[in-house]
Design a protein around this nucleic acid. Sequence first.
RNA 1: GGGCCGCUAGCUCAAUUGGCAGAGCGCCGGACUUUUAAUCCGUUGGUUCUGGGUUCGAGUCCCAGGCGGCCCA
Length: 499
Amino acid sequence: MADPPRPPSHLREEHRRTVSEPDGRARRIPYRFEPDATAADLVERFGALDDGAESGTTATVAGRLMLRRVQGKLAFATLQDNSGPGADGRIQLFAPAGTTPDFDGFCSLSLGDWIGVRGEVMKTRRGELSVRVDEWALLAEARRAFPDKWHGLTDTDTRYRQRYVDLWVNDDARRTFLLRSRLLSLTRRWLEDRGFVEVETPVFHTIAGGGHAKPFVTHHNALDMDLYLRIALELHLKRLVVGGFEKVFEIGRVFRNEGLGYRWNPEFTMLELYEAYADYGDMMDLTEQLVAHLATELRGATRLTYGGRPLDLTPPWRRASMTELIEERTGRRLDLTTPLDDLRQACDEFEVPWTAGDGPGVLLLELYEKTTEAELWGPVFVTDYPAEVSPLARAHRERAGYVERFEPIIAGREIGNAFSELQDPVEQRATFEAQARRKAAGDEEAMAVDDDYLRALEYGLPPTGGLGIGIDRLVMILADVATIRDVILFPTLRPEAGS
RNA sequence: GGGCCGCUAGCUCAAUUGGCAGAGCGCCGGACUUUUAAUCCGUUGGUUCUGGGUUCGAGUCCCAGGCGGCCCA
């Protein structure tokens, strides 16, 4: 690909010439390099070496040059590799002029250059574990200047657009994404250990179902038809329960055509799982056990802090109905038996907008979200949602007008959604049709009738518990970060000017 | 979508009421054999986000736009 013409500002960032061999030729970059140790390994194995001692062991390491201290006939440098966030992944390089090949070339390396080094593992007189530079090779030149070695990179825009730089200079960024990776791995293993099977279902949907959200639309040329990017995993996974996958899960990207914010990115990662013969109570048990397991593995405890405030994820978590929590928060007893006019009056009082088409269930949910949800530090399972706003959940076994549904709330945010799943195809068709009427009336987030899903239910869905967890939000809690953009490697951004 | 705040050298930041656009780090050159944000000396580096306007004079004031952050819906 030809380089486009560059503006002067880019040329200025090419801050130096190509590093050359002692004879002036361009330095050759090897095609491969074989490190046999990492910074973290060496600290672990040789950390106890005496000051000034040599280990008698030779190691080969590779990474980026992050600091450099040339002192005449002796040079020190700090190499960072992938073996740990921040200081855990750093090792000092020790380069005396007398033994270092092409000492001048080594001293002329810049911050950000990739190098490979082979040499004796030793400790300096001042007690810093080091690899002596008996051999070294330039692996890549940093032709753009690295950010300030002390202040790093703080501009959020640059951090998100140039994550490849952020990961090197901000320890927290690397730490958070390593935590995210481990969280995904631990979640898979934990579920598999309990007999769950991981599957992959389509990202392109002909009907965007399973959630309350505006979908993205794309077009398939050969079929000449519009397709939606999935807003949820739910309906395909329940088809698989019909198909006999009794414990099934998927961790996948979903897409919602909504605004961006500290908790919202248009594409995000959902875990959804379905368990035959289980109900929403079982899903609460599973949720608190899984989250407690992840907290223990990733943070060493279930008593954490989030944003400086204590957060105790130790099971069991409180379980309380939505109406009960609204009453605690507002002092008002509001439920589905409250006259519609009273609910509307409460909405006006709490500045909740409503329309004439909104039933009591919609108003109750809106009131809950406006007055109560953000105040719940939790963890707490908010249970028993109005049927009117829960078209895929099964009717509550005791409370008329409600369904068996809960959302786990942590730090004022919903991190998931779960039901005793609606089994009955006749009831399901009725709730789909109610949704379709809302859609026809202008609710862009309402669902459409999914005839194939209804056909699947007609073959028989056993009693099933289903759970969805927003992985990004869970990572936010466990990594103790405030914005979703800090847990998504390449968050959605507006294009840069001029691109 | 609304309100508020921000955008100055590669990075982190200064610049009194409108009055010569600066520092540290980086980069480049020099000194230095136990440094670790090494230190010391000397350079280099600017479309002050963009476009208009007011003014003798605009980084600074006004208008429009771009991008980002925070709060609200």
